[in-house]
Simulated scan of single mutants.
Amino acid sequence: MDLARKRVQISNNRGRVNGWTSHDRVFGICTAVDGVARSGVAGKLLTADSDDSSRT
């Protein structure tokens, strides 16, 4: 994650990195596969009490 430039690294389902995209192009993230939580998800999810005033 590159917070200064507001972008994230994107990858495919085979573990290969495809490049970078801006935060406004991210529509969702994978949080679990077959009921097994994915590592690294903590801190990346919006919650009901999150301040999303910067989103349009």
Rank of each mutant, 00 (worst) to 15 (best):
N12K: 03
R55P: 05
G35Y: 00
S53G: 10
G40K: 01
R14K: 13
V17W: 08
V17S: 13
D24E: 14
R14Y: 13
R5L: 13
D49H: 10
A4H: 09
V33D: 08
D24H: 10
S50H: 05
G15V: 03
K6I: 03
N13K: 11
R14N: 14
R38W: 07
A32T: 08
R16A: 15
N13I: 13
V36I: 14
G15W: 04
H23T: 10
T31P: 01
V26L: 05
D24W: 01
A42K: 06
N18R: 13
R25E: 10
L45K: 06
A48R: 13
S39V: 12
N12H: 06
D34M: 07
R7I: 04
I29N: 02
D52V: 12
R7G: 00
W20H: 05
D34N: 12
D51P: 00
T21E: 01
H23M: 13
V33F: 09
V26G: 03
G43A: 05
D24M: 05
N12Q: 09
V33M: 11
K44Y: 09
L3M: 07
K6V: 07
T31A: 09
V36F: 09
I10L: 06
D34Y: 04
V8R: 01
N13C: 07
L45V: 06
S50R: 00
R14W: 07
M1K: 01
V36A: 12
V33L: 12
R16F: 15
